[in-house]
Design a protein around this nucleic acid. Structure first.
Lengths: 193, 193
DNA sequence: GTCTATATTCAGATAGAC
DNA sequence: GTCTATCTGAATATAGAC
């Protein structure tokens, strides 16, 4: 599968770079992070790094894509963990990586610009995440766990929005319990008409 | 009050710069906006602009502070408009100024960095906004309009978070009705235990 | 795949004249 | 209060050797 090891090595180096990038962002903040610093932290020159990622934006996009894959694997791994359980779990896990959270809030905000290269990534990401939550909500409506009067699309969108907004508040005040807010909101759905 | 007109003129120029800055951000996006471009749009040189604002970050902070003041004036002006009414109204109004929304989501995200000059501004802003909503929620609990079982602090924080998160989603997909989501959530509070 | 070296562009800030 | 001119520094990206 790995062609004479070089492919696997290239992948390993990519992972190393992504990890180093997170470290630097956590230390310096999103704005203060240059590709040069990331390359230094990965034991590479800047040009060496640019061999693996075409641009800084692509590098950051890949970091967030990888996080999503890890979070998705969480849902897939355990049949007892469905979207509405996995969502607050992922949020709780984020608490351990404030640098990643900072990267996410900054980059997703910037990416809303019409010409931004990561715009499509976030549009698709939001759609997929919402779809996942909507499916789980509908399944629970079918079993009677959640009331059918609840608008699944709207509730899912609101929940995602809340989780995103909480990240900014949490970065400003780490006493805020993001997961608790989200869990409380999901619980409140049960009281819906 | 205005000392021989020069003070008033200085203020007018400041306003002009803030308006021009919004235009440029709306056109170029937050990231692509330089002080030079803003100064050009205000009919000033860069140095001329820097006479009014010590730094780019201060300029952006002032734009957002001014918006808040306008929104606050809305609540104060009409006794029938209390915080829970004013909040979705302000959100609806934001729909007309996507550039300002983009500036807000980007700048508030960046400002969460520990050393950022606008960090204190946003910490205070969130606290004030939450306080305003909490007061109104409690008042409505006292009249029986909202159930006393509702945690006012938590509900207010969640509502603000949702509104912030919705702005990112709306910038990616303008079909989303931010105000409707917020109003729906406030309505759902009435069904709380 | 990684390096050195550099191209290119552009940023925010300041000095000092008017 | 505003200008011209410039400083100073940084960023991303690329060319080409090894």
């Amino acid at each position: 599968m790995t062609r004479r090891g070089s492919y696997a090595k290239g992948l390993a180096k990519r992972e190393e770079i992504l990890d180093a990038a997170l470290e630097v962002v956590a230390r310096e903040g999103y704005r203060g992070t240059s590709v040069r610093e990331i390359s230094a932290a990965s034991g590479l020159s800047q040009a060496g790094l640019m061999h693996h990622f075409a641009s800084k934006d692509e590098l950051f996009t890949e970091i967030l894509r990888r996080r999503d894959e890890i979070d998705m694997a969480l849902i897939a791994s355990d049949p007892d963990i469905r979207a509405l359980e996995a969502f607050p779990l992922a949020i709780k896990h984020n608490t351990e990586v404030p640098g990643l959270v900072h990267l996410y809030v900054c980059f997703s905000a910037e990416a809303t610009a019409p010409q931004h290269v990561a715009r499509a990534f976030f549009i698709e990401r939001f759609a997929r995440l919402q779809e996942l939550l909507v499916e789980d909500i509908r399944a629970r409506q079918a079993t009677g766990e959640l009331p059918v009067g609840l608008n699944a699309q709207s509730a899912a969108g609101s929940l995602i929005a809340m989780a995103d907004g909480l990240q900014t508040q949490w970065l400003l005040n780490p006493n805020i319990d993001m997961a608790a807010h989200v869990i409380e909101t999901i619980s409140s759905w049960r009281k819906h008409d």
